[in-house]
Simulated scan of single mutants.
Amino acid sequence: MMKIAMIGASGFIGTRILELLCKESAKYDCKNIDLAPSLSFNNITTIGDVRNQHQMDSELHGFDLVVLLAAQHRDDVTPTQLYYDTNIGGMEVTLNAMEKNGIKRIIFFSSVAIYGLNKD
């Protein structure tokens, strides 16, 4: 059984991936680590922060694959440093935690709002 750690999978894309993986529960053991609770998969979700090295080191222990979806993706993120700390720093934290835990495989998703900023 492959153990998959999803980071930031409480949103639209992550929820859809978890739906598919959980249907194959004999093949995959999944965990979601996210700042926000998951509406559909709260039973496998741990509240966590991709920017926290100590936490990611611990949470990724024993996994075979990481799927990284965590990001600040709105056009109006404030403070703007949060965008860089999460999107760049979070990747660095994840890669460091993977190296510490001997995880060799990652799937990285990146998306942005395609409809533009809606201030209303």
Rank of each mutant, 00 (worst) to 15 (best):
I17Q: 14
Y84L: 15
N32W: 05
F63T: 00
M1W: 09
D85S: 09
A97E: 01
N52F: 00
M98V: 07
K27N: 11
I4N: 03
D76G: 00
I88E: 06
C22R: 13
N43E: 15
D76W: 03
L35V: 02
V50I: 08
S58C: 07
Q72G: 07
G89E: 04
V93P: 03
L39K: 13
G116R: 09
E19F: 05
M6H: 09
M6P: 12
N52Q: 12
M2T: 14
Q53P: 06
G89M: 05
A113C: 09
L18T: 13
D76F: 09
V77I: 15
M56H: 06
H61W: 02
G48R: 00
N96C: 09
S25V: 05
N52V: 06
Q81D: 15
S40P: 04
I13C: 02
L69Q: 03
I107T: 12
T45H: 05
G89F: 07
I88P: 10
N43G: 04
S58R: 09
M56K: 01
K31R: 08
M56Y: 04
L95Y: 07
I88T: 14
H54M: 10
R16P: 03
R105A: 05
I88M: 02
S38P: 08
A36Q: 11
D75Q: 08
L95D: 14
K119P: 15
N32I: 01
S25D: 12
K23G: 00
V93W: 03
V66D: 05
D120L: 13
I106R: 07
I44W: 01
L20H: 12
A26W: 10
N101Y: 13
R74K: 14
D64V: 07
V112Y: 13
S40M: 09
K3R: 15
L68R: 06
V112T: 15
N118T: 13
F108W: 15
Q55G: 08
Y28T: 10
K27S: 07
D57S: 04
R51V: 07
R51D: 02
Q55I: 01
D85R: 02
I114Q: 00
C30G: 03
I4E: 11
L18W: 13
R51Y: 04
G102F: 01
L82T: 12
Y84Q: 14
V112M: 14
L65A: 06
G102C: 08
